[in-house]
Design a protein around this nucleic acid. Structure first.
Length: 194
DNA sequence: CATTTGATGTTCT
DNA sequence: GAACATCAAATGC
């Protein structure tokens, strides 16, 4: 296997990276439950400075969003609605608060660990759709905020980029408050064969 | 079957 | 005090 290196995350083109992340492997080794892996099937780009849907819109800087200003290649994990840990990948150069939310994966490895974490039976190759469920299955919590993706707790493995015909672009969901920015085609999903 | 609602913490007004 | 990048369970047709 070949880990993605930091150069991949330093591009300024968030939307482009969100597109190329589809099909890559997200792996974690947490909580003593062994390695869990999933193929990324759904992403959303958040272009910090210009995007009303982003926590860091207009350069807003808080203790929470601080992570987004780091150079690309670290995890940004935050708590949503008080109970869901959402996993994002910080991209772009330092001080540019760009990030990509992982919304869905296809589970490839570590089904037992995922079953324990979610409290439910996990079927081989099942697709997990929903950012809250992704981090739950992989055991991601806010402890991992600011963790480098180049080490052995959590990392990404390179895979060939998918052909365009297998990729669907769409507007993002759950962010109606962002007005016109909610309509931007910043959401990418992999067409899995049904 | 579609729609509403409860859990719950961090941040911003 | 309100709002929020959510999910699952309960309620209403």
């Amino acid at each position: 296997m070949e880990k993605l290196d930091q150069d991949f995350f330093l591009e300024a083109d968030v939307v482009g990276i969100a597109r190329s992340l589809l099909g890559k492997i997200l792996a974690t080794n947490l909580g003593g439950l062994g390695i869990t892996k999933g193929r990324i099937t759904e992403t959303e780009a958040y272009a910090g400075l210009t995007d009303k849907a982003s926590h860091a819109y207009g350069g807003r800087r808080t203790k929470r969003t601080e992570t987004m200003y780091l150079a690309g290649g670290v995890a940004y994990v935050y708590l949503c609605y008080g109970m869901h840990h959402l996993f994002n990948i910080v991209v772009g150069p330092q001080n540019i608060p760009n990030a990509i939310l992982i919304r869905g994966i296809q589970q490839l490895q570590g089904f037992e660990a995922m079953s324990i974490r979610t409290g439910k039976q996990v079927l081989a190759n099942a697709v997990v759709s929903g950012p809250g469920k992704v981090s739950k299955a992989l055991g991601i919590t806010t402890n991992l905020d600011k963790t480098s993706l180049l080490e052995d707790l959590i990392w990404l493995e390179n895979e060939p980029v998918y052909p365009n015909e297998n990729i669907v672009t769409s507007k993002r969901v759950g962010i109606d408050y962002a007005a016109e920015d909610a309509l931007l085609p910043y959401r990418f999903l992999l067409q899995t064969d049904e």
